Amino acid sequence: MNMIRTAVPVLLGLALLSGCKADSKAEEKKEEAAIPVEVATVTLGTIDAAYRGTATLEAENEATVLSKQSGTVEQVLVEEGDRVRAGQLLARLESDKLRFERARAQADVDRLEQDFTRLKSVYQRNLVSREAYDKTQYELSAARAAADLASLALRESEVRAPFDGIVSARYIKRGNLIQPNAQAFRITQMDRLRAAVYVPERDIHKLKTEHLVKLTVDAWPGKVFTGAVLLINPVIDASTGTVKVTVNIDAKQSELRPGMFARTEILYDHREQALLIPRDAVITEDAAESVYVVASDHARRRVVRIGYGDAGNFEVLEGLKAGEQVVTTGQASLKDGAKVQVVTPLKDEPAAGAAPAAAAQEG
């Protein structure tokens, strides 16, 4: 009898404990926390298909002007940044000796021309041998050639621009002693730029001449420049597996400069009324793409098929409909069927104590 009296309280305690655990589990399930996420709506829009790469802008015409003679630099007539015309004088070497040599050569020509004129009249009367006549004629021809060489050497003491352009570098100074083929200036045509983009051979069939090219550079953030495919090299570089594509850049875009690093997009297709979602919404695992679709405060994982993509969006070929909402931030915390709470991203606010922009400008 005493054993029965002792067992009853124990059983009652176990029952109460079991009931408390069950109530706790039910309460935990009831209070399942919603995961905050940001979403975007599947929309219809246009998208461009593009091959993206990088390139360094180059001048179509650029030349290093060399000194053709040795000598001391007497005058430097242009500076870096000056615009020059084809044939314009850029620098002059000391040329007194060259002028004297040309004068001496010309004097020899004048003397031999007089001798030849007299000898010719005598030869026509058969008063001089043919040998003497031919010898004088040869001497006159040699003297004329020597005079031409002296004139050429004098002209080459002047350094001139090969074409219209900008002086982009000056290598000489007044008083420098330079040798033949020494660098003097670099002339660049700023208004005719090109860029070389190296495209993998697997993508080359997509590209054609005249395809539009968009370019961006760090010097002008947010601004898009344009060009067009000019040439596609017919030969594949075996060492890299790429093909050189030459882009011609619109000459009216004066902000661009040779040597700038550019990000390029060669646009080879365009689609209207495409289903678009932000790039951030797509999850790629094992070469398959999926997204989380939000409906009735729950997120469901759905496999999708992706088409073209640009800097901000992907085209969806299968798996979504216009108007559906997809998660763009918070996917790492989600699993299929998880409860979610859609939140609005906070806008950037000025730091505490910062003065309004207008007030800062007025100050």
Rank of each mutant, 00 (worst) to 15 (best):
R194I: 12
R194A: 01
A195T: 04
A195Q: 03
A195C: 05
A196Y: 11
V197I: 09
P200N: 07
E201L: 04
I204G: 08
I204P: 04
I204H: 08
I204V: 15
H205N: 15
K206C: 05
L207T: 14
K208S: 12
K208G: 10
K208Q: 11
K208C: 00
T209C: 00
E210M: 08
E210W: 06
H211N: 14
L212R: 15
V213N: 00
K214R: 13
K214H: 12
K214F: 10
L215T: 02
L215N: 05
L215S: 01
T216N: 01
T216I: 03
T216G: 02
T216L: 03
V217T: 12
V217Y: 07
A219T: 15
A219K: 12
W220L: 10
W220K: 15
K223N: 08
K223S: 13
V224W: 08
V224F: 07
V224P: 05
F225D: 01
F225G: 04
G227F: 04
A228S: 12
V229F: 02
V229R: 02
V229Y: 00
V229K: 00
L230G: 14
L230P: 00
L231M: 04
I232T: 10
I232Y: 06
I232Q: 05
N233M: 01
N233L: 03
N233S: 13
P234L: 05
V235K: 13
V235A: 03
I236W: 00
I236K: 04
I236H: 07
I236R: 05
D237I: 11
A238I: 08
S239T: 14
G241N: 02
T242C: 07
V243D: 09
K244S: 07
K244Y: 10
K244N: 14
V245I: 08
V245Q: 03
V245P: 02
V245S: 09
T246Q: 14
V247A: 06
V247C: 00
V247Y: 12
V247K: 02
N248A: 14
N248G: 11
N248M: 06
I249N: 03
I249Y: 04
D250Q: 07
K252G: 08
Q253M: 08
Q253V: 05
S254D: 13
S254C: 00
E255R: 09
E255G: 04
E255H: 07
R257E: 11
R257V: 10
R257L: 09
P258V: 02
G259P: 05
M260P: 08
M260F: 15
F261A: 13
F261T: 13
A262P: 02
A262R: 10
A262H: 12
A262V: 12
T264E: 06
T264W: 08
E265I: 10
E265F: 10
I266P: 01
I266E: 02
I266M: 11
I266C: 03
